[in-house]
Structures are given as structure tokens and as C-alpha cells.
Simulated scan of single mutants.
Amino acid sequence: MVDVVDRATRRRMMSGIRGRNTKPEILIRRLLHLHGFRFRLHVRDLPGKPDIVLPRYHAIVFVHGCFWHGHDCPLFKWPGTRPDFWREKIRRNQAKDNLVRESLLANGWRVGIVWECALRGAGKNIEGVAQSLSEWLRSVAPLIEVRQ
């Protein structure tokens, strides 16, 4: 499939996509705050600069976009242009995600991953996501993955 915009326009559009303070991330922060959790944001001293760090619970929450992290869900669709570039890019993102997760777990951190599809689309269940995170934070489970 041919791109509907020229290369310069596509480049400008893609460079405008933020990596921090995205809508799903802000939504998760609001939900956690409403449930009484306090946290820090984007701590640079930790592997992967986690989106949300809850020091009291020794827990970290990443809010992953389904496209950028290659999630197998209805929101993810491979781009039609430059498929080799995108497959390699997303494969590298996934490999880095795995390294960061294993490093944090090895250092005693608990890791939570919330996928964008849990907050958007047909499987949207925002209160269910908040409840799952809240229960996980109050437990001792090392890992949780919230998806559609």
C-alpha cells in the first residue's frame, strides 16, 4: 500500500508522536491517584525510565502503546510502507522491553505493564484496569500485564 502523504509530511507526523505524557499514560496516572496511590514519573536512574514508579510498593508501571511495542491485538497493524524497517524497529523495541523488565525484576522491582488496547477500542475497561492495578499493587505478585 502506498502512503497517502509525501515522505517529508510523514516524517513530521511521526516525529510529533510523544514518548512521555501520552493520553493512556495520563489516564493511568489519574486512575492510580484516584485510588490513593502516589508515585514518581520517568525516573532516569532506573532501567527503561519507567512511566510510573511507586517507591512505597517497590513497583513500576509501564504504559505501552500497542503499535510501538508490537502488541498482538486489534489495535496493532503492520505499516504498508517500509515493512522491513518497521519489523526491525518493533523487534528492537520488544527486545529492549524484555531486557528492561528482566533487569528490574532481578533488582527486586515489581513490574506492571498496561497495554493501550486495555484503555481504547472495543475491549475498553478503564475501571477494570484500575481495579487490576490496585489489587496487584497491594499484593506481592512480581508481574502483571493488563491487556484487552
Rank of each mutant, 00 (worst) to 15 (best):
V2E: 12
D3V: 08
V4H: 07
V4D: 02
V4P: 01
D6A: 02
D6V: 15
R7D: 08
R7V: 13
R7I: 09
A8W: 09
T9H: 00
R10P: 08
R11W: 11
R11K: 10
M13C: 01
M13H: 04
M14D: 00
G19F: 03
G19Y: 06
R20G: 00
R20K: 15
T22S: 14
K23G: 00
K23Y: 05
P24I: 08
P24Q: 04
E25W: 06
I26C: 08
R29F: 01
R29H: 00
R30N: 11
R30I: 10
L31H: 07
L31T: 04
L32T: 01
H33N: 12
L34Q: 14
H35N: 06
H35M: 07
G36C: 09
F39R: 05
L41I: 08
V43K: 14
R44S: 15
D45V: 12
D45P: 02
L46I: 04
L46N: 03
G48C: 05
K49Y: 08
K49R: 13
I52F: 07
V53T: 15
V53I: 10
V53A: 13
L54Y: 02
R56F: 06
R56K: 15
Y57I: 00
Y57S: 10
A59R: 00
I60N: 02
V63I: 14
V63L: 14
C66N: 04
F67T: 02
H69T: 07
H69N: 04
H69S: 05
G70S: 06
G70Y: 00
D72R: 10
C73S: 03
P74F: 05
F76Y: 15
K77Y: 03
T81S: 12
P83L: 11
D84Y: 06
F85C: 10
F85G: 07
W86H: 10
W86L: 02
W86A: 02
W86Q: 04
E88D: 13
K89S: 02
K89F: 14
R91W: 11
R91G: 04
N93F: 03
Q94D: 00
Q94W: 08
Q94T: 05
A95M: 12
A95S: 08
K96R: 15
K96I: 08
D97Q: 05
N98Q: 13
V100A: 07
V100R: 03
V100T: 15
V100M: 04
L104W: 08
L105N: 07
A106E: 14
A106P: 02
N107H: 14
W109F: 15
W109P: 01
W109N: 02
R110P: 02
R110A: 05
R110C: 03
V111R: 05
V111H: 07
V111P: 06
I113W: 03
W115T: 10
E116P: 02
E116L: 06
A118N: 12
A118C: 04
L119D: 02
L119Y: 07
L119Q: 09
L119P: 02
R120M: 14
G121E: 07
A122N: 12
N125W: 06
I126G: 02
E127Q: 12
G128T: 00
A130T: 01
Q131E: 13
Q131M: 09
S132K: 06
S134V: 09
E135R: 14
W136D: 01
W136K: 03
L137N: 01
L137H: 03
R138A: 12
S139Y: 11
P142H: 05
V146T: 10
Q148H: 09
Q148E: 10
